[in-house]
Computed example of a mutant assay.
Amino acid sequence: MRYKRPAVTAPAFKARSFAELKSLRHALQQAAAREAERQRLLREQLQREQARRQLFAHAVGPVVPLKGLAPRHTPAPQPPEPLPLQRQKDEQQALRESLSDAFDVATLLDVDDQMSFRRPGIGLDVTRKLRAGHWSIQRQLDLHGLRVHEAREALGSFIRLSHRTGLRCVRVVHGKGLGSPGLEPVLKGRVLSWLVQKKEVLAFVQARPAEGGAGALVVLLQPSVRRP
Results as ranks from 00 to 15, higher is better:
155 L>K: 05
158 F>L: 03
64 V>C: 09
119 R>A: 02
21 L>Y: 10
43 R>K: 11
172 V>Y: 02
62 P>V: 08
164 R>S: 13
68 G>E: 12
157 S>D: 00
155 L>I: 01
218 V>G: 08
143 L>H: 05
179 G>T: 09
48 R>V: 01
144 H>K: 15
73 H>L: 15
185 P>T: 11
128 R>D: 13
167 L>P: 00
23 S>A: 10
141 L>G: 00
89 K>C: 06
155 L>R: 01
34 R>G: 05
24 L>E: 11
29 Q>N: 14
222 Q>G: 08
13 F>D: 14
222 Q>S: 12
146 L>R: 12
226 R>M: 10
22 K>Q: 13
132 A>Y: 06
97 E>D: 12
190 R>E: 06
181 P>I: 08
84 P>D: 10
127 T>G: 00
20 E>D: 13
130 L>W: 02
174 H>P: 01
70 A>L: 15
118 R>Q: 07
187 L>E: 03
121 G>I: 10
137 I>V: 15
113 D>Y: 08
101 D>L: 15
137 I>M: 01
220 L>F: 12
208 R>P: 00
80 P>V: 04
99 L>H: 01
112 D>R: 12
113 D>V: 12
167 L>S: 03
143 L>D: 03
1 M>E: 07
178 L>H: 11
46 L>N: 07
141 L>N: 02
136 S>D: 13
158 F>A: 04
73 H>I: 14
176 K>F: 13
48 R>L: 05
32 A>T: 08
165 T>P: 01
89 K>A: 14
193 S>I: 05
211 E>H: 05
25 R>T: 05
193 S>G: 15
209 P>I: 00
138 Q>H: 07
161 L>H: 13
48 R>Q: 05
3 Y>D: 11
153 E>T: 01
115 M>A: 00
182 G>Q: 07
77 P>D: 10
150 E>D: 13
90 D>F: 00
20 E>G: 10
12 A>V: 11
221 L>R: 02
35 E>V: 02
5 R>A: 15
35 E>P: 00
91 E>T: 09
102 A>C: 08
79 P>S: 06
225 V>Y: 09
85 L>S: 09
209 P>M: 03
89 K>F: 12
206 Q>D: 03
15 A>L: 14
192 L>Y: 11
130 L>Q: 06
184 E>L: 08
54 Q>V: 04
137 I>Y: 01
78 Q>K: 14
51 A>Y: 01
133 G>I: 08
115 M>D: 00
25 R>D: 09
148 V>W: 05
131 R>W: 02
121 G>D: 13
185 P>Q: 12
12 A>E: 15
190 R>T: 04
164 R>G: 11
36 A>K: 06
111 V>F: 06
136 S>A: 10
44 E>V: 02
175 G>C: 06
59 A>G: 07
96 R>L: 08
33 A>H: 09
24 L>C: 04
111 V>C: 10
196 V>A: 09
190 R>F: 06
83 L>K: 15
223 P>V: 06
143 L>N: 03
70 A>Y: 12
172 V>C: 04
22 K>R: 13
29 Q>D: 10
12 A>T: 12
170 V>F: 04
140 Q>D: 08
36 A>M: 04
203 A>K: 15
88 Q>G: 00
45 Q>T: 01
55 L>M: 11
149 H>N: 12
174 H>N: 07
217 L>V: 04
134 H>D: 11
162 S>K: 00
174 H>T: 03
104 D>T: 07
78 Q>E: 14
101 D>I: 13
218 V>I: 15
19 A>D: 07
173 V>I: 15
